[in-house]
Amino acid sequence: MKAIIELAGVRKTYRSGSIEFEALRGVDTRIDEGEYVAVIGPSGSGKSTLMNILGCLDNPTEGSYLLAGEDVSRMSEAQLAEVRNRRIGFVFQQFHLLSSLPAWRNVELPLVYAGVPRAARRERAIEALTRVGLADRIDNKPGELSGGQQQRVAVARALVTEPALILADEPTGNLDSASTADVLALLEELHGAGRTIVLITHEHEVARNAQRNLVIRDGEITSDELTGAHA
């Protein structure tokens, strides 16, 4: 199996004045193509820091991070932006949709920054929305959609660039149980179609949907086990 994520001795230290805080204290792990992994940990465990580094939103202080074979641990901000655009699809807890734009314009955003021509962008955005079951909602603005539908739009946005990795940060944190099941089913379906998914959550119930659970505590991975969920 081809590795999508390879972390070796990753440390992250935050400094505020004279106080140093080590959020990650040497994380080593490898996530292969097609895996569905949940990162679980209570707040303050370093889970968010790990998510930022995995998402190329932040550089590690020490250690190396290979994303799809590319060393991203020492890249500049502009280079990281380009890697995020090309390799990673984000799904956030607060959806982060732009309320003034219709669904398809939200979904096409990553393609705008990738320099894809306008006509192709619309076509691909509609394709991605169809894939998440919102073919009849392409012109609706986020305010006209339910929470579950909004998160589906966000998933479509994460899919549209065909990224190597889908990084979902508490994607069900703001949803009721019906919508939660809905979004988890969608992720499961994408996993079934061969996508690599990393789900960050503090809920064990949500994490059980993934094949593999990484438990993080005090900046270190304390447990790494398969859940037995079908691949």
């Binding site: 998402g55 939103l57 901000e77 502009a78 932006a81 380009e82 995020r84 655009n85 090309r86 984000f90 982060h96 732009l98 955003l109 990553p110 920054y113 990738a114 946005r157």
Partner: peptide, 12 residues
């Protein structure tokens, strides 16, 4: 923040 996460560089 969102635009940056989706790949907008600082110069964009």
């Amino acid at each position: 923040g969102l635009r940056k996460a989706l790949g907008a560089t600082p110069s964009v």
